[in-house]
Design a protein around this nucleic acid. Structure first.
Lengths: 207, 207, 207, 207
DNA sequence: GATGAATGAGCGTTCATTCAT
DNA sequence: AATGAATGAACGCTCATTCAT
């Protein structure tokens, strides 16, 4: 029986409080003291669970990558048609960013020296999450649904586009210079068109 | 070391030193004292020329928007064929970002509360720079070179894509997860393909 | 309005307060905050006058070396007989240490990494202060009062002895394991004896 | 029984790790956590074996005094000629300091409030180690080899000199302002000369 | 015997900014 | 037009130590 029920998992509390503070105040204004204040513990306690501030953010980054990976796998797994899988991937990726702005920002929008997270490792993780899209592309090609032979680059280009979309929305959440939903539809549409074949660009079963 | 004879000299020096420091040390490590030290004056002197740090960065942002605008106009002006104008626009936009990473970052990658610059005003400026691309699209449509009727959104989507491209390269300059040049060619190619018509997707005279 | 009188020379106040705190609490317990509190200013103000803690201590070390130098010159200058000059040097050196324990400690008893002062520079300064003793030795030899040809080493050995004497007294000010005054007389006596010639070891006119 | 071995084991490990850390990082940078990390245990475990940091250092100081005592006895015991015994004492004392800088520093160069060790007790111990030198002096006098009647003070003066020598070398190990070996020979020589008798200062059989 | 968890106190330092001059 | 001097607020972090387990 635990007497300190409200103290259970300070490590978890720290991570959550950090996410919450990052969301409300941004990376620049995150401080160990504020995190501690948010939880009700003292700043040095954080150092028991994390070596330093960078390690704390790094832990969040890793959580983010794991979540992203599982979400991408799950999203793609809902469909069998490769183009649907691809669209599902794109939409789920965007959803991940919109639902988890803090994760997305520290994963992909923070300079390495600010997050303390090795960017190479970050991209290695990101590539793992891209795999479902690459495989979907491959399968689509095999089925003659798209004309592309450079699946990796094609997926990279999609990632770039979705990153641009998310980066703008997340950076200016209240002042997005475009209609997010309509723009996303438009973007996805253009992606498919760009891989279309002749007059019948793609045999796409819309989600 | 410049002399202090020039009246407007210090203001200019401050702006230049700020850009230089932002380039070498990043936004996070920029401080009024460092700027002053770089120039050889004292921190309070900066306050004579700029109300505060935010105003200083804002001045740089405005400079950046002016430069971007003139570069975009100039780039498009070199061609008459609308698709060439469009491609020139895209390439010049990317070039602007790569050549002026500091401008690009404070213009489009800094949160409003960090730059102190009104994001709405920022997008108003950005839209001005997008005008040449929009007009090129319109003309291309008029000439039957592309099948698009939503020129603004199409241009927005291009901006999103190029922003994603630049954001990644600028954020991880030494660890870009793709080959910048080849990816840029690929992206531009896909943009045109996505607006192609039937079996002959576009009549594009490559630059 | 704060008059110039009570604010004059915060830099000087900082140095004095630092010396005072070093005396009462030791190097280990010196902190920028305590210095500030002693004076009545705030810790950051110290940083206007000294780059950091090491620079502050270094400034004191330099002061100490200057004081030592002038005291040694002055002490030796009071006599013409070289052996008297030598004795005066030794007694004045000890007096400097006893009167200025803080100076002595930071000059000669602090590890380089604690004082932030280059030990080589420190010894260069110390050697300057040793010059009067070396010259006295030389003159004593010329006059046939002592039999020594290695004046530098002889002076070095004296310095070592006096340092041992001071280091013990200063480290255990209340518990010195010997009678300071008598021991000093004894030491000086032995120094002269060790340089004596035959049965009439030295022609010394006691001070 | 395994328990007993373990019990004394960690205590011993703590002492050794502390010595090692003191050697490599200095007193200032010694911390309970670092000691624990060095061993592979946690900081609170140290408190099972030592009441606090001061007690831990005190234990080392005591070890040092024991070692010094046995080394001095042993060194002097190798000779029968009292002057040789005296020289052996001096050389062994210096050797102890050079070979065991950490012991020497915490025994004789640390302020009482830093070591937590009663300085009076410290000097009581130190005097025990001086006994062989005092006795050698007495015997030398008895044999007419030196002219001294204050053996205790004479030995004290020697201790002061050797302490000065060691304090400088240990404090500036890389920047000693004199040649250690030659200076030691010189010092020992002067000690004997200072106790010499008339034209034939001492009948010393060099070691 | 040892540790997981936590904390109060404190550290050196940096910062944007102010204001009298 | 610029600066000398100062400050309130905060920062990341380390420390010796405690205490329940």
């Amino acid at each position: 029986m635990k007497t300190k029920t409200d103290r259970t998992g300070l490590r978890r509390q720290i991570l959550d409080a950090t996410r919450s503070l990052l969301l409300s105040e941004g990376v620049k204004n995150l401080s160990m003291r504020k995190i501690a204040a948010e939880i009700g513990c003292k700043a040095p306690s954080i150092y028991y669970h994390f070596e330093n501030k960078a390690a704390l953010i790094q832990a969040l980054v890793e959580e983010g990558h794991q979540l992203l990976f599982s979400l991408m796998e799950e999203a793609v797994g809902r469909y069998t048609d490769p183009l649907q899988r691809l669209e599902a991937y794109m939409r789920a990726y965007v959803r991940f960013g919109l639902d988890n702005p803090v994760y997305y920002e520290i994963m992909f929008m923070l300079r390495a020296d600010e997050s303390g997270y090795d960017p190479i490792e970050s991209f290695r993780q990101a590539k793992k999450s891209q795999a479902p899209a690459i495989e979907a592309f491959q399968e689509a090609e095999r089925q003659g649904l798209v004309s592309t032979d450079d699946f990796i680059r094609a997926t990279g280009a999609i990632g770039i586009m979705l990153h641009g979309y998310l980066a703008i929305i997340l950076n200016y959440p209240e002042n997005s210079p475009f209609q997010p939903d309509e723009m996303l539809d438009y973007i996805i549409d253009r992606v498919f068109r760009s891989h279309g074949i002749g007059g019948e660009p793609y045999k796409r079963h819309r989600l």
